[in-house]
Design a protein around this nucleic acid. Structure first.
Lengths: 210, 210
DNA sequence: GAGAAACTCAAACAGCCGCTTGACTTTTGT
DNA sequence: ACAAAAGTCAAGCGGCTGTTTGAGTTTCTC
């Protein structure tokens, strides 16, 4: 079986690549880009140091690949969640859909939370041009903004943009800070019950009087 | 003049210590604890590498000293800002007082913003026991919570605690993420106009229907 | 069966890391 | 006047960093 054994070998190479990306994400989520260490990644992935140069060119190449992987998984989840919205969706629905991927990740833990943490980190220290994902990123931005403005006719566009970014930052903070770890101990319903009103409130602001 | 020249010498030593702390804060704010580098700090401070061991014992000692310095400046500012609140203060007043130090730092830039960025970073990766400042920290927590609950009688304590921490995280995010840098380009009034409603909204949540 | 290609590995590379040392200057105490 | 103390400095320490190399194994092509 020629092709069969060839596939085995190629899949072994792919498995090494995947293990390296997974290990990189874990370290990236935990200590950020500055804390990334070649040998710690390779040891954690059960691979040789040279495998990084071979498969990704350099540690930075591996880091970029891991970040792009995480960013794409995040954007896909966000896009899918926002697709549930309709023109009739209220502000709470928008907040729930907007926060859903993070709530889900906090409740699920494991790789899903690692992905979210990585995305949050790079939200603080963004790398150079992620051209390939710019379209998906713009889509989440546009969908959120449209749903938000439909519910807040009195709020100008700059304000709506700011509130969207602030709410995203709030969710990212939950992923990174200790409060997120405390939150993650509970079930998804409890997390949602706490998070959604705050996101919705941040969206809505303080209209006129208290 | 014996004592005079002695003072000169001791002040020179103190100036080196201060320069090291300032340079450390700058690097800490920019790249976090993992990105801290002895030689970059000493070069930026115009000091010799040995000065760190001499004055602070180790790079970690210097790092701890810088963090404690930043944390104390932040807590003092927060405490002073919250002191302006009275039992009659509305939710918007609470939000304004709560956000004031960050708004001020964003508008002022320079060392004040560096301090805020450092505090925000350690909010993500907290160091071990800051016993000496635990009292001040508790004070800000207590003052905020009291003012908040007075304005939100229908909100339980766990929810109020969560909203306080979430709002603090939101402000910290503004200090760290690019959106903060964009914000910092404008005057303080503009920053406050954008930030305060979002903080107030996060405090208030989404009471019943939208 | 010979050679190319894919993949892994131990060993080494130069360079930076935090830290220490010993000499040096200036000020203090007696 | 002389020794102790405070502070600064260039040089060097072992250890860890990311990367490269060349040999090794396994599979594919011809």
């Amino acid at each position: 079986m020629a092709t069969h054994k060839a596939d085995q070998r190629r899949e072994a190479g792919q498995r090494t690549k995947d293990a390296l990306v997974a290990a990189t994400l874990e370290q990236l989520a935990q200590r950020g880009r500055e804390g990334l260490t070649l040998r710690e990644v390779t040891d954690s992935a059960g691979a040789n140091v040279a495998a990084v140069s071979y498969h990704f060119g350099s540690l930075k190449g591996l880091c970029d690949a891991a970040i792009e992987h995480a960013l794409e998984r995040y954007l896909d989840a966000q896009i899918q969640s926002l697709e549930s919205l309709t023109p009739a969706s209220g502000l709470e629905d928008v907040a729930r859909a907007f926060a859903a991927p993070m709530v889900h990740a906090l409740a699920a833990g494991g790789q899903e939370l690692v992905v979210m943490r990585t995305v949050a980190r790079i939200g603080i220290d963004p790398p150079r041009g992620w051209d390939r994902l710019a379209g998906k990123f713009e889509q989440t931005r546009r969908d959120t903004l449209r749903a938000l403005r439909a519910n807040l006719p009195g709020v100008g566009e700059p304000e709506a943009v700011f509130r969207t970014r602030a709410a995203a930052g709030l969710l990212n903070w939950l992923a990174l800070a200790p409060i997120g770890a405390e939150l993650a101990a509970g079930p998804a319903e409890e997390i949602e019950r706490l998070v959604v009103p705050v996101v919705a409130g941040a969206f809505r602001g303080l209209p006129a009087a208290g």
